[in-house]
């Protein structure tokens, strides 16, 4: 097969796969050349074989659309409160070990510094005040999380409604 036939057959194949009529020049060549005519016939059969599937009844569009829409709606709606809160609390717990380690470090440093100045009982009292204040502060932060999540959901809902 010469180069011209090779190129013509490639173009005929492209036209068949693109489901369009070949260029007139390629059609003329295929009429005059046996090898290219055979290729064109083969492509014709191939198109018939592939087109056979087009005769299958299409799935009702409405059904496809309804299901996809339901999924989209579910994907757009905010996550349930509990799931969201769990995620937020999980995130908020991550820095807790560092906060505690830092607080202990501060307490130890302060205790060493004040050890020679203050009596032991005063140091214990100061330590108790420090740690209880810290515990109350951390407790308040975690207790505020459900309210923050609820507030956020409410803002999201309001912005979604028309």
């Amino acid at each position: 097969m010469n180069r011209l036939c090779e190129e013509t057959q490639d173009r005929l194949s492209d036209a068949a796969l693109d489901q369009r009529t070949p260029d007139p020049i390629d059609r003329e060549h295929a009429e005059a050349c046996d090898a290219c005519a055979q290729h064109r016939n083969f492509l014709h059969t191939l198109r018939s074989a592939l087109d056979d599937v087009s005769r299958v009844p299409a799935l009702p569009m409405r059904r496809v659309q309804d299901r996809a829409t339901r999924v989209l709606r579910a994907a757009q709606s905010p996550a349930p409160f509990g799931k969201r809160l769990l995620r937020v609390v999980g995130l908020a717990l991550l820095p807790l070990p560092f906060v505690i380690a830092y607080a202990i470090g501060i307490a130890k440093g302060a205790s060493q510094l004040l050890d020679s100045i203050l009596p032991q009982s005063a140091l214990i009292w100061l330590g108790m005040i420090y740690f209880s204040t810290l515990a109350i502060g951390i407790g308040l932060v975690y207790a505020a999380l459900p309210f923050a999540v609820a507030q956020r959901r409410s803002i999201e809902r309001n912005s979604e409604s028309p």
Partner: peptide, 10 residues
């Protein structure tokens, strides 16, 4: 086909 559209929507 249905699954494809579900994935697209999701």
């Amino acid at each position: 086909l249905q699954d494809t559209w579900v994935r697209i929507a999701r």
